[in-house]
Each structure stands twice: as structure tokens, then as C-alpha cells.
Design a protein around this nucleic acid. Structure first.
Length: 379
RNA sequence: GAGAUCGUAGCUCAGUAGGUUAGAGCGUCAGUUUGUGGCACUGAAGGCCGGGGGUUCGAGACCCCUCGGUCUCC
């Protein structure tokens, strides 16, 4: 039972990309890694068996805010934590609810103490403080607990971004105090990752990175990006943060992104990603494949009996045809959501695994350049 | 052969007592989705209202003829 360890195996010589291994009490995670999002204890439309066997997920996400509301701490604690409750024995990372401060902006109130949420389920009010969030994440049993932060919207003026960042830093102190004063809940080691904020201001981002780095945490996250800013700006600030954060700790870019976003950000030195895109967009008929992007609902696929994607080593993607999946979507069949989600996640996991191989082989940049171009093709 | 009834978007149909650029659902097409309040959302294309003639200031609606479908009867 030990704190999360990060071992770097290789760094690309003409980029900042790196290949590593994170070791947790629930197993190893090879980086760079993509983490499927399972907000309420379920990666929507995908079973845990499929996550293990088809998607080959190494770690998944849960959400503090959503799990706290349902099923609630009583059930989670009685179950022995989220791993036991949902039947997932690999690592779990929980987002703190900080993003919900941003996405559910209409029904919350931010103060120094914390955030007063109004439940989207029944309208009841709940106060989330850094201390409360740490306790909840302990009870969920996350291997990686994210600090409670505020994710400012884009655009935010300098004053707002600065005040927000400083609040996030004060909350971070309280998170660490609470974290250090509470034991691991279920016997295995839980880790706390702080989150860089600072909006789209270089001096604030740099300051935030330095503050976050001073905590000497097992890993560090970059938040507040991909919230509507131009893509080039997202890359610019990701690069800046990667430079300013410790080299020997995993860097997690929260909420990103498209396949090409991920490759570009691996190039900049990011090790961990999560995004709802493969599942949410998949449920809406958008497929990410090794040859480009497909809107599977389009009639052009109605008689295309070739595999969803024969460019990745995933049995389901090789087995089912585009015409069949289109039919399932048009017929509004539940299986459509399952196959699209499994395929997209499998593709994402294949992509980061392949990126890792290319980094280890020293071919990352040339491979990435070609892939970024190809993956964006509209088929 | 006679009577009844229907004919409006690719499909199924709305279109009040005749009144502005004829609507809906589905389908088609396109776009959106980035630490999940979404099997979602936004938009577009698509009609000589079966055809012809007439009444009227004005007809998808009313009248006549005609073509086609359906049903009933002889």
C-alpha cells in the first residue's frame, strides 16, 4: 500500500512527449492514458466487462457531485467503496465537482467557504466545501482524488481569473489539510491531485503552476481549458503549464478532447486525459476511427458492409459493419449506443497506446503529424 | 355499369365557415457536442395541393369535366 508512483521510461527527443507508468494499489497505468468518464458509476452504455476486455480501459472516472447525490454516501460506504459497488478493480479517479460549479452555473452560489449547490435531481441544497469534498472522495474510495477547484468560464476578465485562482489555491490548502488529517478509507492508498487554474493569463497560469508544484503531490492537473477558448490558445496554455509543472510527476489535462487534441497535447507533455466526447458523441452517431470521423447516421453508410474500423485491434470494431450500426441508429436501437460507445472508447485507448509505442520507438513526431491530419478527415 | 369516398413534401397525414410567403411527424442532408443535468440539440433542403376549366377581389378548400386509388351495390 503506497502512494502513487510515476516512472518515466522515455521522452521523445524532438518533443515533450513521454511514456511512463503510474503505479497504484489497484494496478499500473501506462501513460499517456485516456480515462473513460463514468460520472455516476457507469460509463454510459458500456459494461465493466466491456471496459476490461474490449475497451481495455486502465482507469475510469467518477464524479463526486453526481455520486454524492446518487446513490449517496450511505450506500457507497456500505458497499465498501465505488470499486466494490460497481465491480471495477482497476484504478478510479474522481472529479471533485469543481467542473459542476462551472457547468451547472445557474444553480450554485460560490463563497469563500465553498459552493452551495442546488441538486439537479430534486432541488435540494447542499454545501460543498473543500473539507466536505475530501470526505466524499475518501468515501467513494477514489485512487486519485481531485482537489476542489473553481473552473472560471471563458472568457473571464483578469480580475475574475485572478480572484478565482487565488480562491482555488486557498481551497487547495484546505483540501490538503483535510486529506492529510483523514485516513485512507478502505486500506489502499488514496492520492490527491491539485489543479492549476488561472484562466487565459500567462502570469496567472505560471503562478498557479508554481503554487500547485509546491504541494509536491503525486500528480498534477490542468483545469479550466477547453471551455470554449480557441484551440490554439488551449495548446498554448497547455504547453506553458507543462513547462512549469514538475517533470517527474504525471500531468493530467482535464476534459480534453478530440483525438487530434490528445495527440497534440501528448506532444506538449501531457500524460493523462479524460473526456466525454467518445461516449457522448458516440451516442449521437459520431464515430472516431483510425481513418477519420464518421457520422454513422448518414445514408452513405447504408450499404457499406465494411467493418466500423479495421485499423484498430478491437474485435467489436472489426466485427460489426457500418451499415449495421447505421441501421441500429436509425432504428433507435439500444445496441447502437453500446457499439458506438465501445468502438469510440476502444479507438481512444488504442490511440494513446499507439502513441506510447511510438514514443518508446522514437517515432512519435512523424507518426503524430500524419495521424493528426488523418484523424480529422470527414469520411 | 351505378353510387360513395379519397387524391396536399420521399412516406403517413393536418389544413378551421374560401383570406397574407401551404403545415406537422417520420425520413433525407448538414452542423453542434471537450473534468456528462443530453439515446440530445440546431438548422436546411424538399409541394405547378392528381390534371383541365369555371365561380370569386381571392380557391388546397366551392362547381363542372377528366385521370387514378379504395369500398359498396347491380
Amino acid at each position: 500500500m503506497a502512494e502513487l508512483q510515476f516512472t518515466l521510461h522515455a521522452t521523445s527527443n524532438n518533443s515533450k512527449a513521454r511514456a511512463g507508468t503510474m503505479t497504484t494499489d489497484h494496478g499500473e497505468i501506462n501513460t499517456p492514458i485516456f480515462m473513460p468518464v463514468g460520472t455516476v458509476g457507469s460509463v454510459k452504455a458500456v459494461t465493466q466487462q466491456q471496459l476490461y476486455n474490449d475497451v481495455k480501459a486502465q482507469i475510469i472516472l467518477g464524479n463526486t457531485y453526481h455520486l454524492y447525490l446518487r446513490p449517496g454516501l450511505e450506500v457507497l460506504e456500505a458497499a465498501g467503496g465505488l470499486h466494490q459497488f460497481i465491480g471495477w478493480q482497476k484504478p478510479i479517479l474522481t472529479d471533485s465537482g469543481g467542473y459542476q460549479v462551472f457547468s451547472l452555473a445557474a444553480s450554485r452560489k460560490i463563497t469563500e467557504k465553498g459552493v452551495m449547490f442546488q441538486s439537479h435531481i430534486d432541488g435540494s441544497k447542499h454545501l460543498f466545501t473543500p473539507e466536505v469534498v475530501m470526505d466524499i472522495e475518501r468515501t467513494i474510495g477514489a485512487d486519485i482524488m481531485m482537489a476542489f477547484d473553481e473552473c472560471p468560464p471563458y472568457p473571464s476578465d483578469y480580475t475574475y481569473a485572478k480572484n478565482s485562482m487565488e480562491l482555488t489555491h486557498r481551497w487547495l490548502d484546505r483540501c490538503f489539510t483535510q486529506f492529510n488529517n483523514t485516513p485512507d478509507k478502505y486500506g489502499y492508498t488514496q492520492n490527491l491531485f491539485p489543479i492549476v487554474q488561472g484562466g487565459t493569463y500567462k502570469d496567472l497560469r505560471t503562478e498557479s503552476c508554481q503554487y500547485i508544484a509546491s504541494k509536491n503531490a503525486a500528480g498534477n492537473a490542468i483545469g479550466g481549458l477547453s471551455v470554449g477558448e480557441p484551440m490554439e490558445m488551449m495548446y498554448e496554455f497547455t504547453a506553458l503549464c507543462c513547462e512549469a509543472l514538475p517533470q517527474n510527476k504525471p500531468r493530467y489535462l482535464m476534459g480534453v478532447g478530440t483525438p487530434w487534441n490528445i495527440l497534440e497535447c501528448i506532444d506538449l507533455g501531457i500524460d493523462m486525459f479524460d473526456c466525454v466526447m467518445p461516449t457522448r458523441n458516440g451516442r449521437n452517431g459520431m464515430l472516431f476511427t483510425s481513418k477519420g470521423v464518421i457520422n454513422i447516421r448518414n445514408k452513405k453508410w447504408s450499404k457499406d458492409f465494411t467493418p466500423l474500423d479495421d485499423g484498430i485491434p478491437n474485435e467489436m470494431s472489426n466485427y460489426y459493419s457500418k451499415a449495421y450500426l447505421r441501421h441500429l441508429f436509425v432504428a433507435n436501437e439500444i445496441l447502437a449506443l453500446q457499439l458506438a460507445s465501445i468502438h469510440n472508447l476502444s479507438f481512444y485507448l488504442w490511440l494513446v497506446t499507439e502513441a506510447r509505442t511510438q514514443i518508446l520507438n522514437g517515432n512519435f513526431i512523424s507518426w503524430k503529424t500524419e495521424m493528426v491530419e488523418r484523424l480529422q478527415t470527414r469520411l
